[in-house]
Amino acid sequence: MEFWKKRIPLIIVFLAGLTMILTYYSSRKEAVEILTSYSKWYQIIAGFALLLGVVSLGQVHIAKIRKLKSGWAYSLIMIIAFLVMSISGFIWGIEKGTPFMWIFENVTTPLASTVFSILAFYIASAAYRAFRAKSFEASLMLAAAILVMVGRIPFGEMVSRLLPDSLYFLRIDVITQWLFRVPVAAAKRAILLGIGLSSVTMSLRIILGIERTYMGGE
């Protein structure tokens, strides 16, 4: 069992990882073909795994409806929506003008936009709650946030224009641009560099079989 559950997957990970690394350093068309075929294989396997997802979805929600657990009505709506979308897709296809597409464009899309638009409200409440000048760093963050928020709107530019040309560097939009281009870009680069190096190390750990927590067990 250990052989099938641990050894074989580790060998597959090692070989696949090594192949992917080597293809990166070759210019031949064959290398590109290997790279793209790996991606296609992953998508095919993930496609089959979707079935697992559907089974899981069914199990969880049907069990909830059966036991009339709190929120069972939502599960019922989910099952009905799932069936309507699947059946309409199977019968009439998913091209433009079909019932599936109509539901997608007129129900799914507005709903998704609605959830996304809640972000505006949540940003306001989170900003109100969290942006407190509790320390020097927090005060700095607060000041930067205010500057960027003013600098990114026409109002900030209008106010800035009141300044004479000799004080151009004090214009809020100019400061905002500078914040984006210098400190923000520098900090992001530093974080990205750390992420890049760590992900290389992590990948090597996985390829060499040193890291295997993701296979279950520590």
């Binding site: 505006a120 940003i123 306001a124 900003a127 109100y128 942006f131 607060l142 946030a145 205010i146 928020m149 003013v150 990114r152 709107i153 109002f155």
Partner: peptide
């Protein structure tokens, strides 16, 4: 909205 959020802050 930016101005309102600044006022909130």
């Amino acid at each position: 909205i930016h101005i309102v959020i600044i006022l909130f802050m």
